[in-house]
Amino acid sequence: MKESANRDTALEHLLLAMAKTYPAFTGDLSPQGYQYDLFRGVWILNGTGSLLIESPNRPRTMTKKKDIETGEDQKAE
């Protein structure tokens, strides 16, 4: 997982030296087999209308939104 950002490690701040570096995610974040319902404000299982969170096969919720480590409140935006 650890990748190099080719920074000068001798000059690297301790916080950067201890941080984890990985390829930035650029793909589609939508859960497969589900679509977002703009009117209802929820993800629904394709072809059924049932809610993602009530589906036994739903993706496991993780500790971060999208499970991307952008901080507790998805600080990227």
């Binding site: 990748e3 950002a5 000059l11 950067l16 941080a19 984890k20 990985y22 390829p23 930035a24």
Partner: peptide, 27 residues
């Protein structure tokens, strides 16, 4: 939050346990 980007890579900082001497001599 320690969160930076460079050339397609993302860097995220967790709470880290570090050797005191290493920390003392770090930038």
């Amino acid at each position: 939050t320690v969160l930076v980007w460079e050339r397609g890579l993302e860097t995220f900082g967790y709470t880290s346990l570090v050797d005191t001497e290493f920390a003392e001599h770090s930038h």
